[in-house]
């Protein structure tokens, strides 16, 4: 699914968070939105997902303004797993509630899904509180992929993970995007992760899209703000 975001504005209690963001998300590619903390990345992601609504501007999904958000799924920054449900119930949450399949059938599908993410079946009946940070992220990714989305939204996928687990999650994301041929939109400030998983890059600062580029050109940019951001300088 190709997504065109045109001139998006969003205010919260008088504070201008997005001030005319324009960007294009190509079909079946991984688009990364870089930016400092608090620059409006998460708000933009939720607006594209239609979890919140913009004050001004248009978003077109395959040239249409209306879209069935059931074609989307999201990996939340801290997983957002349901504490009161077991791992398998988290992964198959939507299917269980929509009575899509028999429970045994769903359990088999969940096991397949878990195996593809490197999760062993002994985690099946565990609660999220019994899992490590990396495992929680993988379960959350499993939940996001279980509904076979056309577009996956990744909100800081490597936040809070050690380098090994970050790498693992990055590899899973790359593998998933390629194998399942889905469009991915990632917001992050983890440059390493962005380079590993992205095809196209946008840099957002002060609620405005500063630049878009491919991975090869990212470090050759003449944009001062992006250069400082990439080097971690003020």
């Amino acid at each position: 699914m190709e997504i065109n975001i045109e001139n998006i504005y969003k205010n919260f209690d008088g504070k201008k968070v997005l001030k005319g963001v324009t960007l294009k998300i190509p079909n079946k590619k991984s688009t990364i939105i870089l930016g400092k903390s608090g620059c409006g990345k998460s708000v933009l992601l939720k607006i594209i997902y239609k979890l919140i609504f913009q004050d001004k501007g248009v978003i077109k999904y395959n040239s249409e303004e209306n879209v069935d958000i059931n074609n989307f799924s999201m990996l939340f920054q801290y997983g957002a797993l349901f504490d009161s449900l077991k791992v398998w119930e988290n992964i198959a949450f939507q299917a269980i509630n929509e009575h899509d399949n028999s429970i045994n059938n769903l359990k088999e599908k969940v096991i397949e899904n878990m195996e593809s993410l490197g999760l062993t079946s002994d985690n099946f009946y565990k609660y999220p509180s019994e899992l490590s940070g990396g495992m929680k992220k993988r379960v959350a990714l499993g939940r996001a992929l279980f509904k076979k989305p056309q577009v996956i939204f990744l909100d800081e996928p490597t936040t809070g993970l050690d380098p090994i687990n970050s790498n693992l999650i990055n590899e899973l994301i790359v593998k998933t995007i390629k194998e399942k041929e889905i469009t991915a939109i990632t917001i992050t400030h983890d440059i390493k992760s962005a380079i590993k998983t992205g095809d196209l890059f946008y840099y957002l600062e002060d609620g405005i899209t500063e630049i878009s580029d491919t991975c090869n050109n990212l470090f050759k940019t003449t944009n001062k703000k992006l250069n400082y951001f990439l080097k971690g300088e003020k």
Partner: peptide, 17 residues
């Protein structure tokens, strides 16, 4: 409130609930 703070409410919306 905990569900709201930890984005579980948003997660419900993304899961068509």
């Amino acid at each position: 409130a905990t569900m709201r703070v930890t984005e579980q409410i948003d997660a419900l919306k993304t899961l068509n609930t």
